[in-house]
C-alpha cells in the first residue's frame, strides 16, 4: 500500500437519476469521488442511499445524466449484514481470501496468503482465522468482511450500513480501522447514524430523493431537516461526537 499524493478522479456523477424498472428513486445526483474521498452518505430509509451505491458499483445503470468511471476501477464492497448461512463450512481466513481480485485465484500464491495474514492482523482477527465464520461475533464477522472487501487492493471501498445490529464497542472497533484505510483508498460509507459517522469521515452527503453534498463533516441544521428525525447524536467510546445545535423531534 502506498500513500497517495495527487488525488485522482475515480467516479464522477453529473445530474444522474437512478432507480428500478422505470421508477426514479434518486434524481439530480452530482458527485465526484476522488482517490482521497472519505464520505458518509446519510439519509432516511427509502431515500436512495442503496440506489446510489448500486449505481457506483455498476449494478444498475443511470436512467439519465452522465456518469464516468475510471477504466478497470477496482471496488471493494462490504454489503449490509444479511442472511449468510452461518453453518457454512468456510473459515475466517478463506472469507478474507475470497476477496482476491488478481493473480492466480484458483491456487493463490504465497504473496496473496501473506496479504491475508497482514489483513487479519490489521483487523485483530489473527487468532480467529481458522474458526468457521459462523463462530464469530457480529462485530468480528463484519471486520472479516471488511478484510474481504479490501483484500483486492481496491481504489474505492464501499461500506453499506456496516454497523447495523452491532454494539458500540464493536462499532468503534470497526470504525477505528477506517482512517488508516482512507490513506490508501477512497471510502464511501453509508449509514443511518449521522452522529457516529460524523466524527470518522471527512465529508458528508445527505441522500433523500437527491444528494446534497457537504464539503465538511459538520452536522448542520439543514442536514437535519433533510435527514428527518430521529438522529442519534450521542456516541460512546473513542469516536468523538459532535452536537452543534440542540435538536428535538
Amino acid at each position: 500500500m502506498t500513500e497517495q499524493s495527487n488525488p485522482q478522479q475515480l467516479i464522477s456523477l453529473h445530474n444522474v437519476s437512478a432507480g428500478y424498472e422505470g421508477r426514479v428513486v434518486v434524481s439530480n445526483v452530482s458527485l465526484d469521488i476522488n482517490s482521497d474521498t472519505f464520505v458518509a452518505f446519510i439519509g432516511p430509509n427509502g431515500g436512495g442511499k442503496t440506489t446510489i451505491l448500486r449505481t457506483l458499483l455498476g449494478q444498475i445503470a443511470p436512467m439519465s445524466g452522465e456518469m464516468s468511471r475510471l477504466p478497470n476501477l477496482k471496488i471493494g464492497y462490504l454489503p449490509q449484514i444479511n442472511d449468510y448461512d452461518l453453518q457454512f463450512p468456510i473459515t475466517v481466513r478463506d472469507v478474507v481470501l475470497s476477496g482476491q481480485l488478481d493473480g492466480n485465484r484458483l491456487f493463490p500464491k504465497k504473496a496473496t496468503l501473506d496479504r491475508v495474514d497482514e489483513l487479519l492482523h490489521f483487523a485483530m482477527l489473527d487468532n480467529l482465522q481458522d474458526r468457521p465464520i459462523g463462530a464469530l461475533s457480529g462485530g468480528q464477522r463484519q471486520r472479516a468482511f471488511l478484510c474481504r472487501a479490501i483484500m483486492g487492493n481496491p481504489q474505492l471501498l464501499i461500506l453499506d450500513e456496516p454497523v447495523t445490529y452491532m454494539d458500540k464497542v464493536s462499532e468503534t472497533n470497526l470504525y477505528k480501522l477506517l482512517p488508516e484505510l482512507s490513506k490508501h483508498m477512497a471510502i464511501v460509507l453509508v449509514s443511518h447514524d449521522i452522529g457516529t459517522v460524523a466524527g470518522v469521515v471527512k465529508t458528508i452527503a445527505c441522500v433523500n430523493r437527491t444528494l446534497y453534498y457537504h464539503p465538511t463533516n459538520r452536522i448542520t441544521d439543514s442536514m437535519l431537516k433533510i435527514y428527518e428525525c430521529p438522529v442519534e447524536l450521542v456516541t460512546h467510546g473513542a469516536v468523538p461526537h459532535r452536537v452543534l445545535i440542540n435538536h428535538h423531534s
Binding site: P79, G99, L101, R148
Partner: peptide, 11 residues
Amino acid sequence: AFAPDFAKLSG
C-alpha cells in the same frame, strides 16, 4: 455458494 452476489462482483 457462500456469497453469490459478492462472488459476482469479484468477477
